[in-house]
Amino acid sequence: MSDFIEKFSSISLNDIKNVPESDFPELTAEEKALASQAVTYSNRIEDADSISNLNDSLRNKTFIVGNKPSKADLLVFEKVFKVASKWSSVEDVSKHRHIIRWVDLIQNTLVNVPESEKLKVSLDIEVPREIK
């Protein structure tokens, strides 16, 4: 999958809707369902349960559907990025750690975010150990 990332020209936030799904690897029915689930959660960005579910769904995944990028990564990023940028307290970082890790990946691979606007990930912050 690193070959795909190397060849993919990162796009701006404003162009996300115009990117065709065919630019990404083909998805199985299961992957399409996971993509749909994440997009639905991101459509409910103001609902704490939905954000919590999105965070949990990313616990064991690099990208939204697993180990391959998809259009869903862009669509969810579009909805989540600004909200995630406001998470700075230990509590917020702890609660949303998997989303923050994923946002950092997407802003450095698929989406071209100006350096000054990027989500700042503090590696020094001490968050409580996750209880699964």
């Binding site: 029915a29 399409k32 369902a33 993509a35 749909s36 689930q37 639905t40 959660y41 579910n53």
Partner: peptide, 14 residues
């Protein structure tokens, strides 16, 4: 875990 995605998966209509 989400109802809409379950419907889409079972109906294969995404």
């Amino acid at each position: 875990l989400e109802a809409n995605s379950i419907v889409k998966y079972l109906s294969n209509d995404f």
